[in-house]
Design a protein around this nucleic acid. Structure first.
Lengths: 254, 254
DNA sequence: CCGATTCGTTCTCGGAGAGAGAACAGGGTT
DNA sequence: AACCCTGTTCTCTCTCCGAGAACGAATCGG
């Protein structure tokens, strides 16, 4: 805390921690928050009144909760993605033709950040995982993006968040992981063999803009039984390539 | 600014202003933000680095934007509403049977805050207005909720945000407005006769929990041509009453 | 190819304001 | 009625936030 507090605003940092608590627990009191962030009750109270006046939180007879303004903010964020509708449409098509789950994600702060999920069968987005974060080393989406980043950034990410074993198949060795990215580049897609969730096999492809820089990735995932090598190498890789291509062309990113 | 800066955290307030800018403009530079909030460039930079580390904003080669984390936060907020699915389902039904637009909103910080909008015809939520805010004095939803609040709170709200004329039909006189709320209470629903948007007529009903306290309102809106007095008094008020009833029963609010 | 401009980032320093902790106020409960 | 919880306010000291200037890296135009 003493190392780089001259480069950041301490009060803002704690305000963010307060918001973090409000995300986990809904309708929390001052005392509880104060305990959780390890601050004086009075100090937390000032933070909350400030956030209340700024309309980021709401005070309901003493207890606090996140404001509904975040619904609006989420819409703004979606608009920022630019070609959100193109991506959504393409993923739905992808999910329907393959009969598997198709997803789009971006890298943020060294995490795979899910943005859109299309389930086969229904056109509706079930159990919306938008905004959820996951490790990069254990997912096809993550490895697809890592493969297109420079080595420094890759190592930076890997040792910022570590490479914990999500399942018994997770590759936890950074250098081995690093090496496997070469294969991904040659082949054009990444694979996740039950490395993040047992029973789930997943393939991912990076999305590039004209810089060229990776701005996200698309994946197809399904149970190991259906995701055979043969199917991945022909049908699925072709479908995935076609979709990423459409998205890249319509991309106004950066 | 000097009056109550002892009750709020100044640094947090400015951080919120920075976030406000990021909502209006996407991908902004430090200098531009600094000008907009009227702060030194260096100071804004510190705020942004702090928000970046807290993962609330993202730094893309110098320029900043909101993080995708807000997508997740929006989901949390929806979960907090508790009976979101019940409300959504009921509104869709309401929209379908009446052929008009049905909406649900809550009061926050003295604003009508839209949460769910159901369009007739399609089951999809078009042009999602979730989280958007509107004046209370000029909308049926707002007046429905005001009618169930105590007088002090009503006057507080009315002179906090004022009662500007949104159209030529808007009632801009606080005491006149206050008086009209009595009619709303007797009748059971509020009316907006092109007071917020010209050509749009709207009726609203408050939602009460068992305290009893108002926790939101439901509205039906459509063009003046279709929203006749006769239809409002019979068909629509009945449909609305039935829907609010269902929502109130399934309400786990407070 | 190079000077000038403009950006983001870092530095330094003084004055303001954030946080610790105690005191206050109000509601429930025993 | 005395207690024990809340949330809220107060006071004071030492920290740390913000103004402003300086730095370094890009971009642009001649």
């Amino acid at each position: 805390m003493a190392d780089d507090n001259r480069r950041t605003v301490d009060a803002v940092r704690t305000a963010c921690e307060v918001l973090d608590v409000l995300q986990r627990r809904e309708r929390v009191g001052v005392t509880e928050i104060a305990e959780e962030v390890g601050l004086a009750k009075g100090a937390v109270h000032r933070h909350l009144t400030t956030l209340d006046e700024a309309e980021y939180v709401v005070n309901e007879d003493g207890h606090y909760r996140l404001s509904l303004r975040y619904l609006d903010m989420a819409d703004r964020v979606k608009e920022m993605i630019g070609n959100y509708d193109v991506i959504a449409g393409e993923l739905e098509k992808l999910a329907e033709t393959t009969g598997e789950v198709a997803q789009f994600a971006t890298e943020e702060h060294g995490w795979v950040t899910y943005v859109y999920k299309a389930n086969s069968g229904s056109g509706v987005q079930t159990a919306s995982s938008a905004g959820k974060r996951e490790y990069m080393h254990s997912t096809a989406l993550g490895k697809a993006m890592l493969a297109e980043m420079n080595d420094e950034r890759v190592t930076e990410i890997l040792d910022e968040h570590g490479t914990p074993p999500k399942t018994e198949h997770t590759c936890t060795d950074p250098s081995e992981l690093q090496a496997s990215l070469e294969t991904v580049r040659e082949r054009g897609y990444s694979l996740d063999n039950q490395e993040n969730i047992t029973g789930l096999r997943c393939m991912g492809m990076p999305l590039m803009n004209d810089e060229p820089r990776v701005f996200g990735a698309v994946s197809i995932s399904g149970p190991v039984s259906r995701m055979t090598d043969e199917r991945i190498e022909s049908e699925l890789s072709e479908a995935l390539a076609r979709s990423t291509n459409v998205i890249e062309i319509n991309s106004k990113f950066a």
